[in-house]
Design a protein around this nucleic acid. Sequence first.
DNA 1: AAGTCGATGAATATCACTTTCATGATGGCG
DNA 2: CGCCATCATGAAAGTGATATTCATCGACTT
Lengths: 143, 143
Amino acid sequence: MKRAKKKIFADFIAQRGLKTTKQRDIILDSFLSSDRHLSIEELYLKLRAKHPNIGYATVYRTLKLFAEAGLAREMQFGDGQTRYEHVGEGEHHDHLVCTRCGHIEEFENETIEKLQDEVANSRGFLVERHRLELYGLCSGCRK
Amino acid sequence: MKRAKKKIFADFIAQRGLKTTKQRDIILDSFLSSDRHLSIEELYLKLRAKHPNIGYATVYRTLKLFAEAGLAREMQFGDGQTRYEHVGEGEHHDHLVCTRCGHIEEFENETIEKLQDEVANSRGFLVERHRLELYGLCSGCRK
DNA sequence: AAGTCGATGAATATCACTTTCATGATGGCG
DNA sequence: CGCCATCATGAAAGTGATATTCATCGACTT
């Protein structure tokens, strides 16, 4: 699966006439083996540990590229940082966000999705995407 | 209702030992007779038309004050600006956001709320608040 | 191997707030 | 009514995160 995503990115790069670089390889590797909701800063710091000469701007630009390639999605959880979430094939999910420890869980609910479409239809809206986040305390922090 | 909200704010001001000022009166008036999802910038520009000497910082601080007083709520719709939404008594609603014209509509759906709680419970989460936004084209922009 | 054009990193710019600071008002008190 | 301790205001400066610039570097075609 990691292999498949690398292929997707390689194809994207080729198709756009862009170039393969050491940095892009390293960043993609690191991204693919990371937490599913990483901020630019977090990924940058993680990378710096092993590759002290990778610049913040490169991480920033590469993450944007991942989003364009369909490998990642930009998300905001209200902590002032944009986070990049991994994107699988056609998959969608919503989030549970712990307001105490910052932990983020994912969930899916077919029924909720259906109801959303109903609401939109009744208003003449054509929904392209949605976001649903539940903020509160995770099981660990409730103690 | 506008009268009631002014009363709420007056009480809030008094209770905190703050002061009534011309600016606060003007800003509250303008806020109450505005679109329900105004950004600081938008309200500031609207105000400048009639009151050229009101500063951005004052609008900013006053809006924060409205939020503390329970008259407004800060919201993010992904356009990079914080918007202040009017808050009624204990009311809650979600949003339909048009990605083309920026139009924002509100809706409520009891069943969706219930399903959200079920999902959270099954994960051991205690939900404090949530956000649900449907992004797409409004009826006007679909043509 | 050489040239062309995208990629990189450091530095700088932007953007939307957020805070500071000198000056102006408000409202409790005598 | 006038004082004056405090809070409020507006202009300007500060922040934090993101976005862009620019000189230089490195891929990939020929």
